[in-house]
Nucleic acid binder design. Structure first.
Lengths: 230, 230
DNA sequence: GTAATACTATGACAATTATCAGCTTTAAAG
DNA sequence: CTTTAAAGCTGATAATTGTCATAGTATTAC
């Protein structure tokens, strides 16, 4: 199976590229550049002008924004099938987020021309992208509500559930995506020490188990109740 | 001037409807329903299935979402020229937000068919809506960062600056849009009492002046410094 | 005009969260 | 292998924010 051709790439099933026609996909495939990105390496930086988008084939990237107080807020985690940088390319603005790999990644860089010309010529594609962005906007609204109305404890509980639902567990029952305590803190918007303290507390209460950086969910029900405020 | 026809409506200049062609606009205009909404009245509720969008001709609406703890988080304020409910109609989902007028409003209800058929037939329109949504998504990201990284004091300072920039001031130097203290608290995601206390503090420090519910900005520079964290 | 009701305001206190310091463990570099 | 740096952890303390109680002040409805 030749999965270096977009036409055959399974990842495409998950994103808006599936609405492209054969010809358009061929163009994308011919112009794309495959890249490996090691854990910790940046894909692009906040304020950078993006000349294309990144289609994630494997691995996970954090999308974050530096706040005036010097802390990094993680706004989103992008994984297999997701396209990063779409927003900036569409709005013709510089990126408002930085992307850094949180695990080894395999991505395809797609020059923006392939995207913008298809946007102008293929209404199905445009509509598909639009639907996707509408969905992302809803998710962003939910994050706003969570961030402003829930306690740090609730947000951390929720973050673990999110990680389980979106990235699954490994064979030993640990969350498949391992984030540093600092990254967890940056996801929920708190100080690293506070995050660590709450993680210890969860462990004591038997909600989770840990091994090094790895975290596993032990009592999903209780964790969920906690996240919802009971 | 006949401004009961969308073709002649100035408001259209500000939103994606400007990308519609004559014929499409005619259809919209023929099917739209003009409504007056009194301050405090709802336009639609969270979870409701929307059969169309609302184009704001005058007045302001808050778009909010109930959090599990029973508090209402205001996610956005929509004003003249903005189209509400677009997201839900496009994603074919129930509304994730409630809309309530915070001042007397004059709106046009546009049945979703006019929107969805145009989305399928006019790529320019779709692209225009897409660009707009991309911009909204960026703004949502900024809100997430502010909510999670800034203190309540900073967020309130920022809210006043936002209100000045987006809705202006009246002849007496007060913010043109007057929100209740509770609404202000719900915008920044804090308890009403905390908001009141901080507003009193700002007044004492000479950053703002108040008269009843009305608030005026006295020292914009200091307010801005505070919001940025100095 | 007055009673009822909602909104604004403030104090006292409790809970949550951040900050700073120091220490231990783990991972990386030479 | 060992030295160095980074990440994880914990305690003490301060700052921020929420909650409850209470009272004054507007607004609204009758």
């Amino acid at each position: 199976m030749d999965n270096s051709r977009c036409e055959n790439c399974i990842v495409r099933q998950f994103n808006s590229l599936r609405a492209m026609n054969k010809e358009e996909l061929k163009k994308v495939s011919d112009s794309k550049i495959r890249k490996s990105v090691k854990k910790g390496e940046p894909l692009f930086e906040e304020g950078e002008k993006l000349n294309g988008v990144y289609c994630v084939r494997a691995g996970v990237s954090k999308l974050s924004k530096l706040s005036p107080n010097g802390k990094d807020q993680i706004v989103k985690l992008a994984t297999k099938g997701e396209v990063m940088g779409q927003r900036s390319v569409i709005a013709e603005e510089h990126s408002n987020l930085s992307a850094v790999a949180v695990s080894d990644m395999d991505v395809c860089f797609i020059p923006k021309e392939s995207i913008t010309t298809t946007l102008q010529k293929n209404p199905n594609f445009t509509l598909e992208v639009l639907r996707h962005m509408a969905h992302e906007l809803k998710e962003a609204d939910d994050v706003i509500v969570n961030m402003s109305q829930k306690t740090v404890k609730q947000r951390i509980a929720e973050a673990f559930l999110y990680l389980k639902n979106n990235f699954g567990e490994d064979n030993d029952g640990f969350l498949a995506l391992t984030l540093s305590r600092e990254d967890i803190a940056n996801v929920v918007g708190t100080a690293t020490e506070s995050a660590i303290r709450i993680i210890s507390e969860f462990k004591k209460k038997g909600l989770i188990h840990t091994s090094g950086k790895k975290v596993g969910i032990k009592d999903e029900r209780k964790l969920r109740d906690l996240a919802e405020g009971f």
